[in-house]
């Protein structure tokens, strides 16, 4: 177990618990016909979370300081895909489902392993058009269709 990570987490959970406690104080204290208002449950939970975080913080003192030898991580690949996914979500409603899904998949496939581009293009086009056709045309679902300036 990682000492630093758990300490950071414990402090974060402590803050979350405290936040919920403070914020639930601002909620109404009673509901109509009941002495128990909507504030009670979150307040108690916040308190329990604070106590548990303190417990975790104490437990981290007993962790053995492990020599941290991390195997190499693929940060570059991961970041490219993450940014691509964020752009995918952000632009989906303006540019449309089919185009954004296609672009995201091509970028994703090529980032995972550089290979022949046409294969990635075929799979990406197949998926994005297939989902759109099945879901929107056949099942009458709602997806952002094509770029807004086209319509």
């Amino acid at each position: 177990m990682n000492k630093t990570a758990d300490r950071i987490a414990a402090v974060a959970f402590l803050a979350i618990g405290a936040l919920f406690m403070v914020e639930s104080l601002r909620l109404s204290k009673s509901a109509y016909g009941s002495v128990v208002g909507p504030n009670v449950f979150p307040f108690l939970l916040g308190l329990i979370l604070v106590l548990l975080s303190v417990k975790l913080l104490f437990e981290t003192r007993r962790y053995a300081e492990a020599a941290d030898e991390k195997p190499p991580r693929q940060y570059k690949k991961f970041l490219i895909i993450l940014v691509a996914a964020i752009l995918y979500a952000a632009l989906m409603e303006t540019i449309g489902y089919v185009i954004m899904t296609f672009l995201f998949l091509v970028v994703g496939f090529q980032t995972m392993a550089k290979g022949t581009l046409w294969k990635s293009v075929v799979v990406a086009a197949g998926f994005s058009l297939g989902v759109y056709g099945l879901y929107v045309k056949l099942l009458q679902g709602t997806l952002p269709s094509w770029p807004v300036w086209f319509q």
Binding site: A90, Y97, T101, L105, M112, A113, G115, V123, F127, Y135
Partner: peptide, 23 residues
Amino acid sequence: TKYLLPLIIAISVFGVYAVQVTT
């Protein structure tokens, strides 16, 4: 995995958007 992983992300995005219809 080259195809599998990006596809799972795309399926997740589709699934959540299809039910909630908000980005």
